[in-house]
């Protein structure tokens, strides 16, 4: 016959051992702890990656156009409704494209900030 396990009286949960005392993240940031710095660096990195992505796309498009016109001279002669392609792109299409790109960027950058704020405020 097996021995019954001894009965124990639970008087309180083991809070002390299980959890370290936790600060809000804003306090980690204010006191410039390693953890606080990790949070800030991750925000800066996220935003920088986004900025770099936009700049790379912009650089490829804008930087690529003169090269394209140089390497494929026939492209310069293409006409859309009587207007040469370079004029259609540089004096027209490019401006709405800027605005669209900027709008997408603003949306994503605000989303990143909201995400960061949610993490920081979650206790």
């Amino acid at each position: 016959m097996t021995e019954k396990p001894r009965r124990e009286v639970v008087t309180s949960p083991r809070t002390q051992a299980a959890r370290r005392p936790r600060y809000p993240v804003t306090r980690e940031i204010d006191e410039q702890t390693r953890l606080g710095e990790v949070y800030i660096r991750s925000l800066v990195r996220t935003q920088f990656r986004l900025a770099l992505f936009v700049c790379t796309v912009l650089g490829c498009l804008i930087g690529g156009l003169p090269l394209l016109f140089l390497l494929v001279p026939d492209l310069r002669e293409v006409r859309l409704v009587g207007v040469p392609l370079p004029w259609v792109v540089l004096a027209g299409v490019i401006y709405p494209a800027y605005v669209a790109g900027a709008w997408l960027y603003v949306r994503q950058a605000e989303r990143n900030e909201r995400h960061f704020a949610e993490i920081v405020e979650r206790q």
Partner: peptide
């Protein structure tokens, strides 16, 4: 045509 393109695009770079 690159002049106005750049003068506007500068604001996109500034934005990001």
């Amino acid at each position: 045509l690159w002049l106005p393109v750049g003068w506007t695009g500068g604001y996109l770079v500034l934005l990001v």
